[in-house]
C-alpha cells in the first residue's frame, strides 16, 4: 500500500462546492475510477482521503491536493492520473498524481489572487487602507473567544494592481494547521473601514511550506 497525492484545480462553477461536499464528491470519483483504493474498515467503510488545506465556499483554487491510499504499489502515477481525469467533473481538473514529498500538516503559506470591482476613489482609499501600518481585525481564536489581531504583520507579501474596474490584490498569507489567515478577514476589515466594493473572485493560486517551497 502506498499513499499518493492528487494535485487538481477547482474552478468555475466548482467553487460552489463546499469542503464537506468535495469530500463526498471525491469518494464517488475514486469509486468511479475503480482504482484499488484502500477503504477504512469501520462501521461505515469509505475511501481514506486527506486534503492538504480546505478551501472556503466560493473560492477557486489553481493548486489543491488530496491524498489517498492505493493497495497496488505497481500502479504508475500517470496511469492513475488518466483514470482520475475521466472520473472528475468538468470544473475539477486533475493536474498531476505524485508521491507525496511533504506531509499535509507542513502547509504553511497560501498565495491568493483577489479581483475587486469598485470606482477609482474607492480603489485609492482601499489601497491606502491596505498599505497602512496596522490593520486590526476581530477573529475567533481556537477557544472561540473573540480577539483583536493586527493582520498587517501577518501578510507575508502583498501586491496591489489597479485594473480597469477596480483592483487586483495578490497576497501571500499564513495557511495550514499552525496559523491560518483567510483573505475574507482582510476584506471584512476593509469593508468595516468604509470601503464599498464587490468581490468578483478569490482564487487560491498556490500552497507553500515554511521555506516557501511549493507544497508537493
Amino acid at each position: 500500500m502506498k499513499t499518493v497525492r492528487l494535485i487538481y484545480q477547482k474552478t468555475g462553477r466548482a467553487k460552489y462546492i463546499s469542503h464537506l461536499d468535495l469530500n463526498r464528491l471525491m469518494q464517488r470519483v475514486l469509486k468511479r475510477t475503480r482504482l484499488p483504493v484502500w477503504y477504512t474498515e469501520g462501521f461505515n467503510p469509505h475511501a481514506f482521503v486527506t486534503f492538504a488545506l480546505p478551501l472556503s465556499l466560493g473560492y477557486e483554487s489553481r493548486y489543491d491536493c488530496m491524498d489517498f491510499r492505493i493497495l497496488n504499489d505497481d500502479l504508475r502515477n500517470d496511469q492513475m492520473l488518466q483514470v482520475l481525469r475521466r472520473a472528475l467533473p468538468p470544473d475539477i481538473q486533475a493536474l498531476e498524481v505524485i508521491d507525496p514529498v511533504l506531509k499535509a500538516k507542513e502547509v504553511a503559506f497560501a498565495a491568493f489572487e483577489l479581483e475587486l470591482t469598485c470606482d477609482t476613489d474607492t480603489a485609492a482609499q482601499l489601497t491606502a487602507f491596505l498599505q497602512s501600518d496596522h490593520i486590526l481585525v476581530e477573529k475567533r481564536n481556537k477557544k472561540k473567544e473573540i480577539i483583536t489581531m493586527d493582520i498587517r504583520s501577518k501578510i507575508r507579501q502583498m501586491e496591489i494592481i489597479p485594473t480597469e474596474d477596480g483592483l487586483q490584490i495578490r497576497l501571500l498569507l499564513p495557511a495550514g494547521p499552525v496559523e491560518n489567515i483567510n483573505p475574507a478577514l482582510l476584506l471584512e476589515a476593509a469593508e468595516n473601514s468604509g470601503c464599498v466594493f464587490d468581490v468578483r473572485s478569490v482564487v487560491r493560486e498556490m500552497l507553500y511550506d515554511k521555506n516557501m517551497n511549493i507544497f508537493r
Partner: peptide, 24 residues
Amino acid sequence: TELQLHKLLRGVQKPGRYTGGELN
C-alpha cells in the same frame, strides 16, 4: 455568464442548488 451567476448567488444559502455542472 459566470460573473452574473456569481452576483446572483451572493448571500444565498447552499449555492450548489443553483449552479448545475454536476457529473453526468
